[in-house]
């Protein structure tokens, strides 16, 4: 499985490296606007970039589809479960590294624990959603094939990437939900329970994907 992960890891190294371009300026965050002036703003800015992990997964699947990678792998002594597990493990590791990195960055710039925990929780929850989305996409690719499924997903991905802005403008603001109210969610234990559920869901979807790949390629 490690060999497969190594093979699959190219895109996961390429895309997250883009994060450096976006992420590094944020380390000057406190110099620019002072420590935690907007509470969750730092996390809100960084969290959506986890979709780059999903982009890595997507590009990888595109390449697999283009070169009939599954057909090639299936003639080798590799079980479908190994292929799926390697992909899911890589996604999880990439997501975990990003989330972990964000939490370290928050710890470096935040002066108040009041904002540190909700910020970390915010990014973790975003990571959970990203993992679940990636797992669902993967199932969709296995079910419908990359080219058929891909064109719809590209649009959905763009929407997800920019989602925080419309969510703020069209959902949160009209309902008068403030940042501090959102923060309450990330302060309580709810997000921990949510994370556990998401990870269980991710594991379940991995099992489904193994079954799907086994059925598709015997």
């Amino acid at each position: 499985m490690l060999r497969l992960m190594k093979k699959f890891s190219f895109w996961y190294l390429l895309y997250p490296s883009l994060l450096l371009v976006f992420g590094l300026p944020l380390f000057n965050h406190d110099r620019l606007v002072g420590p935690d002036p907007l509470g969750l703003s730092f996390a809100i800015y960084l969290a959506p970039m986890i979709w780059l992990v999903l982009a890595a997964m997507w590009s990888h699947e595109q390449m697999e589809s283009k070169s009939n990678g599954y057909a090639f792998l299936r003639i080798l002594p590799i079980e479908p479960a190994q292929i799926v597990k390697a992909k899911f493990a890589l996604l999880f590791i990439a997501g975990a590294i990003y989330v972990g990195g964000c939490c370290v960055a928050f710890a470096l710039v935040s002066t108040s624990p009041e904002y540190l925990i909700p910020s970390c929780a915010y990014v973790i929850v975003y990571g959970d959603i990203c993992l679940l989305t990636a797992a669902l996409l993967y199932l969709g690719i296995l079910r419908y094939g990359f080219s058929r499924f891909g064109k719809y997903v590209l649009i959905a991905w763009v929407i997800l990437l920019i989602s925080p802005i419309p969510i703020r403008i069209f959902i949160l603001k009209p309902r008068g939900i403030s940042d501090s109210e959102i923060m309450q969610f990330f302060r309580g234990p709810t997000w921990i329970i949510g994370t556990i559920i998401c990870l269980a869901g991710y594991f379940f979807l991995m099992k489904l994907a193994i079954r799907k790949l086994s059925e598709k390629y015997a």
Binding site: G69, A71, F72
Partner: peptide, 15 residues
């Protein structure tokens, strides 16, 4: 079994 089979298909798939 695949460890002990050399397979060449009708179409060749590689990266």
């Amino acid at each position: 079994i695949k460890n002990k089979i050399g397979y060449v298909g009708e179409e060749q798939f590689f990266y």
